[in-house]
Computed example of a mutant assay.
Amino acid sequence: MKVIQLWDKAIRFYHWSQLLLLAGLWFTADQGYLVVHQVLAYSLAAILLSRLIWGFVGSETARFSHFLQSPLELVRMWNKAKHGIGHRGLSGYMSLALMTLILLQFISGLMTTDDVMTEGPLYGSVSSDWSSFASWFHHNNFDLLLILIAVHVVAALFHGLKKDGVLGAMLHGKLNAEAQQPAIKSSRWYLLLVLVFAGFFALWQGLSLYQQW
């Protein structure tokens, strides 16, 4: 056994920021703080879009090619009870599902309205039928997200009980494992992507949000 760097800072930043932002989005929607809700939504979109790009150009364990296997490979891994390091096996598909649903949640939110004061920036660009569907999806998809997050938390607690180091690795990035050190890239490039997307959203909707404040 040796200590390896499993997760880079970008992955850990995305993971915990995503959790906090989702909690904030739920609270602000529930309380009707819709301007803050939109600011948090753009923040989550910035780190998510950056994470999707990082899934192609980032560290080895961050790449989709590392943790997404074919159904046949999943069966082979399950039979051998050897999942490798990182988001392997079903956990890889869970990560992809969460990212996909969050992206769809953001896109649908751009086309919704509360019928009182707030409209998404794309609300006027789509038909009323499409906006109604987007509103329905935005509401119900979040319930699905909560279910998947609950499953994810249970799985994380299970790893914590097993004391296999997987849960701790998402905090400090390191893991005791019989594996070669995966290639880790500097997370400053991920943070640069976050700033680029955040800047784009600020230029696009910053003035509108300020006027609504």
Rank of each mutant, 00 (worst) to 15 (best):
L96P: 02
L145F: 09
G160E: 03
L122R: 00
I85C: 03
G206L: 04
L22A: 12
Y123P: 00
R88I: 04
R76M: 10
H138F: 02
R63A: 06
L52P: 04
S187W: 04
A62P: 01
R51L: 03
L191Q: 08
K185L: 15
V151S: 03
Q5D: 12
Y14P: 05
L103H: 05
I149L: 14
G84V: 08
F133N: 06
V35E: 10
A46W: 01
A183L: 15
T28H: 05
A198V: 07
G109M: 00
G55P: 05
L175Y: 06
L167E: 04
L48F: 01
G124E: 06
A23W: 10
H152C: 06
A10H: 04
S128L: 14
W54F: 09
V3L: 15
V116N: 02
A23T: 11
W130P: 01
P71F: 07
V154D: 03
S125A: 11
F201G: 08
F106K: 03
N79Q: 14
E178R: 14
L148S: 06
I47N: 02
N176M: 15
I147S: 09
A202W: 12
H15V: 10
F137T: 07
Y123V: 00
E60V: 10
L103P: 03
L104E: 05
Y93Q: 08
L104S: 12
W189T: 11
R51P: 04
L22D: 07
L122D: 00
